[in-house]
């Protein structure tokens, strides 16, 4: 994973609450065996009309949302299925960050492991961002704040290890494998106990 320190973008807003991973990528596309190329399927049944063509009611289809890499989403984004295809699809679609007052556990975990900033902010600030789409934000991973156009800041907290991995592009599997001795010792202890 490439290190990620700072992201700049205008925001787009998906105000629905409880946007589940089936909505982010419908299950019928999960027969893929790769991680690539899922962006065109992202939000498929919301984004396209049943008869084909873009759905003008889908917020990210609006002209002002084009090119936005930061989405402010309604509470409890990413609930439901554990499919990592959801963050893969969002990233391939061009998103880099999701700001929300609450993000489902498995999704948040999957997102951060893939370099998609899944960031939880306070409710009041979340509400304000939902009501003000299209503003320029900078997200600073090291400083753990979102910078507003007027220089104001919204603080957030990332799990320290996730933050460290983002900033340094740490390979988590590599990190785990460095603990081989501890794992082997645990197994030896454990199997004796059984």
């Amino acid at each position: 994973m490439q290190p990620i320190t700072r992201i700049h973008s205008r925001t787009a807003v998906l105000s629905d609450e409880n946007i589940d991973t089936d909505r982010i990528i419908p299950a019928r596309f999960l027969t893929t065996t790769t991680r690539e190329g899922l962006g065109r399927l992202c939000f498929h049944d919301w984004r396209y009309l049943p008869e084909g063509g873009d759905n003008p009611a889908f917020p990210l289809n609006k002209p002002e949302a084009k090119g936005c890499a930061i989405v402010v989403a309604g509470r409890n984004f990413g609930c439901g299925s554990s499919r990592e295809h959801a963050p893969w699809a969002l990233l391939d679609f061009g998103l880099r960050a999701v700001l929300c007052s609450e993000i489902a556990d498995i999704f948040r975990n999957n997102a951060l492991k893939n370099g998609l900033l899944a960031i939880v902010i306070d409710e009041a600030e979340h509400r304000w961002l939902l009501e003000h789409p299209g503003i320029e934000l900078a997200i600073d991973v090291a400083g753990q704040y979102v910078e507003l156009p007027d220089g104001g800041r919204i603080g957030f907290r990332l799990e320290p290890f996730a933050r460290h991995c983002l900033l340094h592009g740490v390979d988590q599997l590599g990190f785990l494998r460095q603990h081989e001795d501890a794992i082997a010792a645990f197994e030896a202890r454990f199997e004796r106990a059984a």
Binding site: I106, N110, Q172
Partner: peptide
């Protein structure tokens, strides 16, 4: 867990 973690468990059981 997600697929990345499936890889972690396959490789390290952790």
């Amino acid at each position: 867990i997600g697929t990345t973690e499936v890889g972690h468990v396959l490789a390290t059981q952790c």
